[in-house]
Design a protein around this nucleic acid. Structure first.
Lengths: 238, 238
DNA sequence: CGGTCGTTTGATTACGATCAAACGAAGTGG
DNA sequence: CCACTTCGTTTGATCGTAATCAAACGACCG
């Protein structure tokens, strides 16, 4: 179960805790690309865990502009952010087709109360999400287009490798250039130009959606990327 | 104790929980403006609660640019974000002079484990912080200068009123225009021009650091402000 | 009274947005 | 199997918002 793996990365759970986690009532559903897991303004009664495929979190402004807030990989308990709040302040949609486990919201709270170790593990999980939100504020607020894109490509690379979904800084970017643009606060036109330029400079190589970071050191440098904010146990990351 | 008040706003705690919270070991210290509560890269051994005065959270990029990530009011448990993570990924400094309670980090975790209701309450508190981070990503990523500034002025107004530190959309802005600029991803020069324009249009009135939102409806409109993300119990906010 | 810090205003620049259009790949239906 | 659509990518031309550079001003402080 990817769910348990995720939590054990950061917290030590006892055998009983592990069983309680696996015993959570849930319903697995296949969701197609673009399928909504939760909508801004909803009063959610469930909490979603992505089992396979990718999901993304976003908000739409009054002007109709979209800002992507996070990308979620298989194994992410994507909706702990809403699990204890009454009404959702953002949308979560599938980026690709995938399987999603829906856990009743109350079961989450009860589990946290009944088994504090699990509660703390879930809390930590959401704190890491927070750390990523903070880094995105910095990315979008204080870095130029080139750095923003390098930064996010480094982040994706590292997170995908950590999840065992990529190797050697090579991965399939699970989103269109327009969605990427909405994640870094730029237009898709400009993202396209910057990507081309990065290829020309030999920092990355692309083939359709596939990305290879050719020169990690330089990418991390221009993207001002330091993985500390991802809070992986294994230190010694660039 | 403002600490308890804060949590009770969102979670119902029993009498014993309340006592356990008050019994947390802590040390109160007076901190001057600019004093650091935590530094990026530190391995914190304490967790800070602001008793009086304002604090802010920020990060510095490799280029030396600063991005303010959040503003914290008296009563905010400002460092729950770091309490369960090993090394801090950002700085927290006092904006004004103020009193700060330092609670040993381990005491927080132990309390969360021993009294799950408090653990959940603290978790909820950090989830609300997350919601604000998300809104800031949107603010900085997808709104123009005018809207960004209106939005953040509305947010401050509402949070200060909720904390009983302001009334009638009038408050003392606890930061310089440069710090405000670093919060919205602009330069201080541009912030200054936008503020002047907002005054001229009659949206706000200013007198040194004092701000009065003259026309809340229009401010909320141009700032695309909807307080849902603040997750206050009392609905019916604009 | 000079010195520092924050605010204000002006002139110029540049980064990324916008507008526009072509192209390629994948999917659909005749 | 080939028109035809749709969606995403790519490139070009022009525009505009906010950055940058520069300097003056006001308030507070030692």
């Amino acid at each position: 179960m990817p769910m348990v793996r995720k939590f054990e990365r950061r917290a030590r759970l006892g055998e009983e805790d592990r069983e309680a986690l696996l015993a959570l009532p849930h319903q697995v559903r296949q969701v197609r690309p673009g399928g909504h897991l939760i909508r801004d303004g909803d009063r959610p009664d469930h909490c979603c865990l992505v089992l396979s495929g990718f999901a993304y979190r976003h908000k739409i402004t009054g002007e109709g502009a979209r800002q992507v807030l996070s990308l979620h990989l298989p194994g992410d308990f994507v909706d702990l952010q809403n699990s204890l709040l009454d009404v959702s302040d953002h949308n979560v949609q599938m980026l690709t087709e995938g399987e999603v486990a829906f856990v009743p919201r109350e079961a989450i709270r009860e589990l946290a109360l009944a088994r504090p170790a699990i509660g703390v593990a879930m809390w930590v999980d959401t704190l890491v999400d927070s750390a990523i939100f903070r880094e995105w504020v910095v990315n979008v607020g204080r870095r130029d287009a080139r750095a923003r894109i390098c930064h996010i490509l480094c982040e994706f690379s590292m997170r995908l490798e950590e999840a065992g979904l990529a190797e050697n800084h090579r991965y399939e970017l699970p989103m269109t250039q327009e969605q990427l643009a909405d994640a870094v606060g730029l237009t898709s036109v400009h993202v396209n130009r910057v990507l081309r330029q990065l290829s020309e400079e030999g920092l990355i190589r692309r083939n359709k959606r596939a990305i290879v970071i050719e020169d990690w050191a330089r990418m991390a440098d221009v993207g001002d990327f330091n993985s500390r904010y991802l809070h992986y146990r294994t230190h010694a990351h660039a």
